[in-house]
Design a protein around this nucleic acid. Sequence first.
DNA 1: AAAATAAAAGATATTTTTGTCTTTTATTAA
DNA 2: TTAATAAAAGACAAAAATATCTTTTATTTT
Lengths: 144, 144
Amino acid sequence: MFSKTCEYAIRAILFIAHKSENGDKIGIKDIAKGIDSPEYFVAKILQNLGKQGLVQSQKGPSGGFYLDDSCRKHSLADIVKAVDGQKIFSGCGLGLKQCSETRPCPIHHEYKEIKKRLIAMLENAKVGTFSEELEKNLIFLKRK
Amino acid sequence: MFSKTCEYAIRAILFIAHKSENGDKIGIKDIAKGIDSPEYFVAKILQNLGKQGLVQSQKGPSGGFYLDDSCRKHSLADIVKAVDGQKIFSGCGLGLKQCSETRPCPIHHEYKEIKKRLIAMLENAKVGTFSEELEKNLIFLKRK
DNA sequence: AAAATAAAAGATATTTTTGTCTTTTATTAA
DNA sequence: TTAATAAAAGACAAAAATATCTTTTATTTT
Ligand code: FES
Ligand code: FES
């Protein structure tokens, strides 16, 4: 559904949101370990998300990544759009050049409803709202 | 959602289902044109689907691709599984190594429901049931 | 001010996906 | 039975996604 890049992006942001809740900054190595992902690769991803204002960072000793309050209000949809673009929001499920109500593909009508739910889920899920569940180990960002 | 390969596969099969309803066989060039896809690439895809018994073909003059009755009963889910594997059926939406009810990722519970609907859609959609709508131009397999 | 730290930036490498071309094999029609 | 046809098979190419490494810049601590 999402690109690998996007999966890492979401998991990294949620990890940072959790770990930086108290004001701490969190380094790239910890992030990579915390979400079981290739360090240099998520570094690139976060660098890009930083430019788009979806994550904060600071260089130098005691530096690292963190989220300010406005970032915590962003939704997963914002991250997905920033990384994977509009495709899953407005694209055709069978890959036609555009999704169209008047010239629908065979799965259009059903897919439209599914897409609607998916989008609703992504827009309702705010980055800042997962910390408590992460803390209590009710949800997880990696397997091992 | 699906790989490009899978999108072409579904569109090609539905095109063949439609065009071969009357017993005709349909050549790869017509298929490629009919679904606006790269000819050699769909040829490879169909070759693979043929090995898996999801499409019939015949070599030589007046040969081409077609579907027998049992193939028309296959669902889109069968095609997706044959091409993209189990990932969208049982994988984790955030890319964790396995989806797990007891160690869920942050989107697990909502995603589970969405996935359920998606799977239901793919399993209910039988290859043979789209011909009439295609014939009447109520649904489409390409844009231009 | 100097040394240490950590992200940013940029270059490079690998793998996977997507796409193309050529040769071979099977089949049919003339 | 020969020539033409069309898919199968295999080799090759290009592009995109994923991953890694090195150098630079900013910042902090000593
Ligand atoms: S036209 Fe394919 S999903 Fe709308
Ligand atoms: S654990 Fe991620 S979708 Fe189930």
